[in-house]
Design a protein around this nucleic acid. Structure first.
Lengths: 347, 347
DNA sequence: CAACCGATTCAAACCGGTTTGAATGTGCAT
DNA sequence: ATGCACATTCAAACCGGTTTGAATCGGTTG
């Protein structure tokens, strides 16, 4: 049963023959170019329809030297991906934007910096992609320069701290962090700490700056800032470190850079005999699905990786079309969601 | 600064000229074919090296009519992806296997069945991929027949319930479910229920069958089986339904088909005044990162989407190479992890 | 009627590889 | 010297599109 009917698909020549015209004219019709008699166009369209013809993307790419694909190189391990709330919806957003344009996404995972560099070089020189999205920017990231020297187009996720000829597609963490800061201060908190992700990455730095800025506007300073690593173990450790401060100077509210660390922090606080939020309020970041179900339900920032991916891809496509693109684009809406891990500051 | 040095990349002709030979010969050494004098080969390799030449994948694909890519079409929404513990590590596994072979992965997300069908058709007729991985199999799934009629190679994730000419790459849920069943029975449970995902999908059916089989081997029957939908709301609802049974006949242990439903189920039980695991034991499925932190920490099955993806991709590549492939391949190891949401059956 | 024009069409070159069938050169047996 | 098998090399065709420069045609114009 189920014979794989390997009927050779029709080519543009078949269509031309069938419509009694030439390849060139068919090509014109396919690309909607002027200079084809209406009657001929109709005949060609009929032939296309009758033969069920679809142009070969590959052949098309070869002649117009556009790969019709964009690349995304990620340095993530299976372990981090298992619980990564960012990647899947992000790539879905990218895909959505890109498929509307009939181009495709090429994914590549790498282990380390050397492999990353090699991946971009291969992508470029094997001409598989027209442009790339630079994600997970690091401090002093070599990629804008590398990618630009390879002649690839690109957009960056957030603005790099190095010179970059590419548009930066930014999310609005700042607004959400402002809201979170106001919420905490409104509850009477004056000593607020921030536990960030690894500072080799740019976004933990930026979020730290956002917290500082938000508090400053309300006349406060960050009580403490500790750099961690996004893991549960790291979150617990950071919490224990913060709790060691003498109790008059101890922060009454702590914001973590992801939910994993925040939840581990809650557990660590409870293990130390503290009540959350009675003794200390906790804020997370990401809004993992189960954050709502832990005890107490986590107050956190819900991010919008889908929207961010969509915006990034759309912007990159505009760049590829040669459109004029502003060098900063906003995409994705983060919202601050209040649950029960935050409460009035202790007296 | 940062001038995009758009130096035209060298082509195979450049290499040929530089090595004072012909394109054909260069192509031979590129593909490691016999019949090139050692001395010539050396000259060509030197030229390649000197020019930094890398063959164009696109041109290559055009002549040998292999796209050098495999496709993956998924019907998932951004909402489900946000907390989907399967997709990201799965695709990473696929990518890993596939990049070793210098082929790439083409992702496509679709909304509904019609769009899905169209996606496969386009993938095939625009010759963008050589084969596809069929995921999220449904009952009576039309895709094996469709894909086969399109002349694409494929592998399926698990064995479909319809005739399929493709190898099935299966995970070992059965073993893990056996372990879970033994664990519960060992704790004295006799009335065990299963809350499954939507039965339009194949794997909830298969898991239900696995539970039935495991219990039967120990002389028991499934106390109840309710079909749900993988959402928190669905899990809570299923739990409430199960609790309505008169308390002598009420299940003392309930296994859910994912962690989301399991956690919502725990909350619902607690809201009904029951103790977990004192009055009812709960088992999840997936092992989401935060499952460990809810109260009580969730006993669950940890799956291996990364390994599954790797296995599926590797198998598909073998099919594409024309190797002989057994029609069932095992990939990925699921393990049963015991935490505190399961305990001795109530007396 | 010749010259010219714009609109349409077409044949051929090209993109950068692979593959083939013929040409070349070498050493060896006859 | 002749013929032949063998190893190497090359030019050309091909994959399926796009693009270009020239050819064709009916209709105007001088």
């Amino acid at each position: 049963m189920m014979t794989a009917s390997r009927a050779k698909r029709p080519t543009i020549s078949d269509v031309a023959a069938h419509a009694r015209t030439s390849k060139g004219t068919v090509s014109f019709v396919l690309n909607g170019r002027a200079g084809v008699a209406p009657e001929t166009r109709a005949r060609i369209l009929a032939a296309i329809d009758e033969l069920g013809y679809q142009p070969s993307q590959i052949a098309r790419s070869l002649s117009n030297s556009r790969a019709g694909a964009i690349g995304l190189v990620l340095a993530r391990t299976p372990q981090t991906l298992r619980s990564d709330p960012f990647f899947a919806p992000f790539i879905a957003g990218v895909e959505l934007a890109v498929s509307a344009d009939d181009t495709s996404v090429l994914l590549r995972f790498v282990e380390d910096d050397a492999a990353e560099r090699a991946a971009y070089e291969r992508l470029a020189s094997s001409r598989r992609v027209d442009g790339v999205i630079l994600a997970d920017l690091r401090r002093n990231d070599p990629r804008p320069a590398l990618v630009s020297s390879l002649g690839l187009a690109a957009v960056t996720l957030n603005r790099p701290d190095v010179a970059s000829p590419f548009p930066a597609v930014c999310n609005d963490d700042v607004t959400a962090i402002d809201a979170a800061a106001e919420h905490l201060v409104g509850l009477g908190h004056r000593r607020i700490a921030h536990v960030s992700g690894p500072l080799t990455y740019l976004h933990p730095n930026q979020r730290d700056a956002s917290w500082r800025g938000a508090l400053r506007r309300m006349g406060l300073d960050l009580a403490a800032s500790v750099a961690s690593d996004f893991t549960a173990e790291g979150g617990a450790q950071a919490m224990r470190a913060l709790l060691e401060t003498t109790s008059e100077r101890r922060p009454t509210a702590i914001a973590f850079d992801n939910d994993t660390m925040a939840v581990a922090g809650i557990i660590a606080a409870q293990a130390a005999g503290l009540d959350v939020p009675g003794d200390v309020s906790i804020v997370g970041f990401d809004d993992a699905e189960l954050s709502e179900y832990i005890n107490p339900p986590l107050t956190t920032v819900r991010t919008d990786p889908f929207g961010w991916g969509e915006g990034a891809a759309r912007t990159l496509l505009e760049v590829l079309d040669g459109d004029d693109v502003p060098d900063t684009v906003q995409a994705g809406v983060s919202t601050f969601v209040v649950r029960s891990s935050t409460g009035a500051a202790p007296a």
